[in-house]
Structures are given as C-alpha cells and as structure tokens.
Amino acid sequence: MSQLMTALGDGAVVAKRNVIKIKRVPEILVFVLLSPIMFVLLFAFVFGGAIDVATGAPPEVYREFLIAGILAQTVIFGATFTGAGLADDMQKGIIDRFRSLPMARSAVLVGRTSSDVIYNGISVAIMALTGLLVGWAIRTSFLEAALGFGLLLLFAYAFSWVMAYVGLLVPSVEVINNASFMVIFPITFVSNAFVPLETLPAPLQTFAEWNPVSSLTQAVRELFGNIPPGAPEPTAWPLQNPIVYTLIWIIIIMVIFVPISIRQYRRAARR
C-alpha cells in the first residue's frame, strides 16, 4: 500500500513538472489545436455540403454530426503529445536522471499520461467552443453530456499509453510525429468520424464498424444527442453498444500498454 502511495506521489511530482511546461510554453497548445480547428472549418464548410448524413438533411445537421468525430480525433491527436514529450525527455537525457533516482519505475509514465489529461481537457474544451460557433449543440441532459466528455478523456488517457510506448521506442521527436500520423490517419478517417459508414465499400465498412474511434464517436454522438434524425440504425454490435465497446477497448489498451510501456522504460537505453 505504501509502495502504491509512493508511486502515486512520484507520478504527481513528474506530472507537476509537465504542467509547468504547458504553462511556460503555451505555444505547444496552439500548434496541436490548430489542425483540429482547421478540420472543423474544412469539413463544416467545404466537404460538409457534399456529405449526406441523412437523406435531404440541411448542412446544420452535418455540422452537429461532425463535432463528435472531431472531438474523437482531437483526443487521438492529443496522445501524440504524450509520445513526443517522452521522446523529448529521452533525447535530452532527463530520463537518465529519472532512472538513476530511487523513484517508482512507473512514475515518469504515470506522470506524463496524467498531465496529458489536463492537456486533453483543454483541447476538448477549445474544440467544443469551436463547435458551438459553427452551430453544434448538446441536446441531452447535463449528466449525459458529462458522461460524453468523461468517455472522451478516458479514451484519451488509454490511448496516450499507446503513444507513450511508441515514444519510448523511437529515436526522436521528429520520428514520433511522422510515425503517429501513420497510425492516426487510418484510424480516424476510416471511421464514422467524418462520414456516415453506409457510404464505405464493404471491407472498409467492416473495419470502420469495429474501429474504436467509430464506437467512441458513436457513443459521444448519442450522449450529446447528435445522431441525425432519420439516420439508419447501426447494424454492427460495436455501434449498437458503443459505450460498452469503447470501455472494453479502454481496458484492453491499458492492460496491454501499461505494462509494456513500463518495461520499455526500464530498459530504455540512453541515446
């Protein structure tokens, strides 16, 4: 028990360090937020007109449909920040210092992923505000909305452990930015985040139906009351039970990536 408390305490010390960095270098936020904001504008006003979410629906319906997808994309992109932060620490030799200290082996990773929840919270808030400006609205209760944001942040937390692992593997920050694009692009675009799944060809549609980004988007859409009226009922199980399916993914990711990331941290040789 006391060992767990020490581990959490150490994690908090590292998290505090990362939060100070967000405070001192707010520019980091700007760059990572610009791309989702651009996506909102691009899809709301450029592609949106060409995408039919329900037969004959006006453009406002697509904008409402879009924001849940953008929010899911934002937290996935946010995880890159975790990986980049760790890769940066490795490069600068700070990880060596941490590894020579009598602190918990999990602390650097726990601290990093925890502080990134704050970072993700800020991103989600800014994206939600952008959404409100383009006509998005929450049509459900406060509780459901809170659950929606909670699920987004929980998924963000789990996914940041995936990127933490990648961050410990790659040799530099530049590489992680490129490597994460290779992962993030297919999983965010081959999903229901931007388009209704019915438009995809069969194999892609199956992938998209079982893609956790789709279930996260679907869950958030339901919780915010943003399912377009007249949209066809989903036929795949993950999208019929999006909250449960997303929670299963969160658990699977954590069970796999927490231990292997910590193991990788122990062995991470200095570069």
Binding site: D10, V14, R17, I20, V25, K92, I94, R97, F98, M103
Partner: peptide
C-alpha cells in the same frame, strides 16, 4: 549521477529542478 549533457529540464527554474529531484529522492 551527473551525465555528459546537463540532464535538467529547461522549462523549469533551477529551484524547481532541484526541488523535483529532492521530492523524487523522497
């Protein structure tokens, strides 16, 4: 341990760096 390149966090102040290390030594 003090390494080849200064393993300090450049966004923290000198005090914050040392305080952090002290906390991690418990």
């Amino acid at each position: 341990l003090s390494g080849q390149y200064a393993a300090v966090d450049e966004h923290l102040t000198g005090f914050e760096n040392l305080d952090m290390i002290g906390r991690l030594y418990h």
